[in-house]
Computed example of a mutant assay.
Amino acid sequence: MAVFTFLEGYDFSGKTIIPFCTHEGSGMGRSENDIRKVCPAATVLRGLPIVGGSVRTAEDAIRKWLGLPRP
């Protein structure tokens, strides 16, 4: 809920929000839709969910999501 308290406390009108999270099976869940409800004047792009146990090997997935080349 800390993230939603933060989002509710600021005006994100005209801003782009790109969420990311770690999880253990739920993926992004309803997060993107919930963010759209809290920040209706912002653009919310597709987020990146990473399985918590895969964080150490997620660099390629993160680079792909960001549109960066492999090192």
Rank of each mutant, 00 (worst) to 15 (best):
M1V: 12
M1L: 11
A2P: 02
A2M: 05
A2T: 07
V3I: 09
F4E: 07
F4P: 02
F4L: 13
T5S: 13
T5K: 13
T5H: 08
F6Y: 11
F6L: 14
F6V: 11
F6W: 10
L7A: 07
L7S: 06
L7R: 08
E8L: 11
E8I: 01
E8Y: 03
E8A: 13
G9D: 07
Y10Q: 15
D11P: 02
D11M: 13
D11K: 11
F12E: 10
F12N: 09
S13V: 09
G14T: 04
G14W: 05
K15F: 13
K15T: 14
T16E: 12
T16K: 12
I17L: 15
I18K: 04
I18S: 03
I18L: 07
I18P: 00
I18D: 00
P19R: 09
P19M: 05
P19L: 01
F20R: 02
T22H: 08
T22D: 03
T22C: 10
H23G: 07
G25Y: 04
S26G: 12
S26F: 08
S26P: 00
G27C: 02
G27E: 02
M28R: 04
M28V: 00
M28C: 04
M28L: 15
G29F: 06
G29T: 04
R30F: 09
E32R: 13
N33C: 03
N33E: 14
N33T: 09
D34M: 12
I35M: 09
R36M: 02
V38P: 00
V38C: 01
C39H: 00
C39L: 07
P40D: 00
P40N: 01
A41H: 09
A41S: 12
A42R: 12
A42C: 12
T43F: 07
T43E: 11
R46W: 03
R46Q: 10
L48Y: 03
L48T: 01
L48F: 04
L48I: 03
I50L: 09
I50V: 15
I50E: 01
G52S: 10
G52M: 10
G52R: 06
G52N: 04
G53D: 12
G53H: 11
V55D: 05
V55C: 11
T57N: 15
T57K: 15
A58W: 06
A58E: 08
A58S: 15
E59M: 15
E59I: 14
E59W: 07
D60Y: 11
D60S: 14
A61M: 10
A61I: 00
A61S: 08
A61E: 09
I62L: 12
R63N: 14
K64G: 02
K64S: 07
W65D: 03
W65V: 01
L66E: 07
G67C: 06
L68Q: 13
L68P: 05
L68F: 11
P69I: 03
P69C: 08
R70H: 14
R70W: 14
R70E: 15
R70I: 13
P71C: 02
P71F: 03
P71Q: 04
